Measured scan of single mutants.
Amino acid sequence: HNLTITQGKLFFHYNPKLCLSEIHKMEEVSGTKGRQERNDIALKTNGDQASCENELLKFSYIRTSFDKILLRWEPYWPPDFRDLLGFMLFYKEAPYQNVTEFDGQDACGSNSWTVVDIDPPLRSNDPKSQNHPGWLMRGLKPWTQYAIFVKTLVTFSDERRTYGAKSDIIYVQTDATNPSVPLDPISVSNSSSQIILKWKPPSDPNGNITHYLVFWERQAEDSELFELDYCLKGLKLPSRTWSPPFESEDSQKHNQSEYEDSAGECCSCPKTDSQILKELEESSFRKTFEDYLHNVVFVPRKTSSGTGAEDPRPSRKRRSLGDVGNVTVAVPTVAAFPNTSSTSVPTSPEEHRPFEKVVNKESLVISGLRHFTGYRIELQACNQDTPEERCSVAAYVSARTMPEAKADDIVGPVTHEIFENNVVHLMWQEPKEPNGLIVLYEVSYRRYGDEELHLCVSRKHFALERGCRLRGLSPGNYSVRIRATSLAGNGSWTEPTYFYVTDYLDVPSNIA
């Protein structure tokens, strides 16, 4: 807008934040220059609390790290170098490059900038070799853009010569660093050979998330399962459950009422301010606690030095998902009996873990797994792929695949051998790939016309006998059925096997 004052003059007093240069501009645009008398524009009460600059400061050096910015700028000295009290560095987070010096300023003089007072450097006698002032900004957020400017702080001049310097606002972004852990990993099994893994992005990506790394490792069953005799009275049979499938998407929606109208769909109840505040506090606490764990609990591995020492970490090797089922080394339970199943799973520490690289999504279907087997899954978020990966501390989750139908069934015939004193040795093959492992066998036998009897055969007993022995049988026709019990439950009964026990007292003698 054009402003013209045809008559009258300007009068400025007691404006401590208004620089004289701005008042002189007002004289020019209003056409009143030359009308004012000496005392109409006070030299001592206008701009006496402001830094009124008329020179431009330029930054000469900028260096960044993930949490620091090192700045240096060209030296500046007023005509009387004693008038320079120091520099004021202003900075704040700036997602967009549209910041002005006066953003967030209120009537009390406060604003949204963080201000650092910096002492002037030592003055050199040689004007050509003056030290460049600077400042190291610490405690910054990774991968965050900051708006920065600097200006001088000078003393009051009796001659009211307006001098000083100020830089333009520059924008500097800190470097990326390792992201925080992925949030809320959930693993479920939808079949006997697959596990579905879902997660949420890290709360602090500290860069642009480029991919996720998912490692999985087959877990050995508890050692007590191999040692305890679950045929003993009072000892509860062990059981394991597989990871249940995901709930429906509708039930997972946030901010939804727990109660549904019987007449149909209901609208979600909005969260109160107290609920939102509580969630923010919980989120802040979780982030602080995660940072504490990362800094205190997890110790970084030592990389190899120039002395030739090897990095103890196993090298990563990509495998196809079809090879995942046989990740671990199978060892027989008892070496003397080769027909026992290889369900003991000690994992070799030198073995390469299978892994998958996930790009542009937060889910993965891990296939080719062994049925009813526990897996430990390790999830890392990465925001750099080359020249070397920059990934987060791992988040861990466990899951067990679903049982395989008929995996616990005894394959092959049940054979028998009759000894003296009416002892019958029953023999059968253990299931080759049971659900988890076989903890015991149930032997059901009966003599024709009598009630059915049951015998429990422990895992250890089966390994020693290759089956079991029935003792003290009365003469007669017998039928026997056997079924295995694994961590997933009972298998199917075998087809009945028949044998006849004679009275050993009636056996004919070869003595003449």
Rank of each mutant, 00 (worst) to 15 (best):
V443R: 01
S509L: 12
E495Q: 07
Y504M: 05
L277C: 03
E433V: 15
P245L: 12
Y498E: 13
G207L: 03
E433T: 14
F246A: 04
Q219A: 06
E290T: 08
G374K: 10
E281N: 04
T485N: 08
E433C: 08
D311P: 10
T333Q: 15
F462A: 05
S367M: 07
R319Y: 04
V457F: 06
E249R: 07
E350V: 13
F285G: 04
I418S: 09
P244H: 14
P475G: 10
L280I: 13
R319E: 13
R370K: 14
E442I: 07
S341A: 04
R447N: 04
S509Y: 09
P314R: 15
C269Y: 12
M402R: 02
Y396Q: 07
R376I: 13
D222W: 14
Y445A: 15
G306R: 12
P354D: 14
V327A: 12
L487M: 08
D408P: 00
F462G: 02
Y441V: 02
G325Q: 15
E404A: 04
T340R: 07
C266D: 13
K432P: 13
E247S: 13
V507N: 15
A488L: 04
S363N: 06
H461N: 09
K432R: 07
N383I: 15
W216N: 13
F226D: 05
N510P: 10
P300G: 06
P238Y: 09
D229N: 13
D291T: 13
P496S: 08
Q384A: 02
Q380S: 05
G489R: 10
A336H: 13
A407D: 04
F226Q: 05
S239L: 12
G322V: 04
F355T: 08
I366H: 01
G489C: 02
W216I: 11
S304Q: 13
I438Q: 02
N383G: 02
Q256T: 09
A399E: 09
E356M: 12
I276L: 06
L364R: 09
Q252C: 12
N421L: 09
L440R: 07
I418M: 01
M427C: 02
L321P: 10
S305R: 08
V397W: 05
G467Y: 05
E265V: 06
S203P: 04
K236P: 12
R218K: 07
L487K: 08
R240A: 02
G472V: 07
D450H: 14
E258D: 12
K233I: 11
E388Q: 14
S262G: 12
S398N: 07
P434L: 01
P346S: 13
I377D: 00
E420V: 06
E249M: 05
V393M: 13
G234H: 11
H425S: 12
P270C: 02
Q219N: 07
I366M: 10
S304G: 14
T343W: 10
H425Q: 08
S284V: 09
C456E: 03
D323A: 13
E378P: 02
V443K: 00
E290A: 14
N383K: 03
A309L: 12
D323R: 11
A394W: 12
N295H: 04
R390S: 12
M402I: 07
P387A: 07
H211T: 04
E227P: 12
A335D: 15
E247K: 08
Q275C: 06
P244K: 07
G436T: 05
E388V: 11
W242H: 10
M402Q: 15
F298N: 15
R376S: 07
S474R: 04
F419T: 15
R301S: 04
A463P: 04
S344Y: 07
A395M: 11
E378H: 13
S458I: 05
T307W: 11
T288F: 03
V324Q: 13
H461R: 09
N339T: 07
S486D: 01
Y375T: 02
A394F: 09
V345N: 08
R481V: 09
S348R: 11
S320Y: 14
S398D: 07
D291V: 10
F499I: 15
A394M: 11
I410G: 02
E404Q: 14
E495R: 11
V345S: 11
H461L: 11
I482P: 00
P244L: 10
I209L: 10
H352I: 03
G368W: 13
L437N: 12
Y396W: 10
V327F: 07
S304D: 14
V359P: 08
G368Y: 04
E260N: 15
K432Y: 08
G368D: 07
L225H: 04
G264S: 05
A399Q: 11
E433Y: 09
L321Q: 15
K302R: 11
T502P: 08
R400G: 06
N360C: 15
M402D: 11
D409R: 09
Q275H: 10
F226E: 08
E388P: 10
G374N: 10
P338I: 11
L487N: 08
D323F: 15
N383V: 13
I209E: 07
E281C: 06
G476A: 02
P475H: 10
T373M: 07
E249H: 06
G322S: 09
R400L: 04
E389K: 15
N360R: 13
V443P: 01
S474Q: 09
A463E: 07
R218I: 10
K236L: 12
S257W: 04
V443T: 03
R471H: 09
Y498S: 10
K406V: 14
K357Y: 09
L437K: 11
D273R: 13
R240E: 15
R466T: 05
E362T: 11
L453R: 02
D385H: 11
A399K: 13
M427N: 02
W242R: 07
L235C: 09
G374A: 04
Q384L: 05
F215G: 13
D385E: 13
V423G: 15
S304L: 10
V297K: 13
Q219K: 09
P338H: 07
E404N: 10
E417N: 04
Q275S: 09
H211G: 08
P332G: 10
R318Y: 04
K406Q: 13
L277V: 15
I377G: 04
T307D: 15
R318W: 15
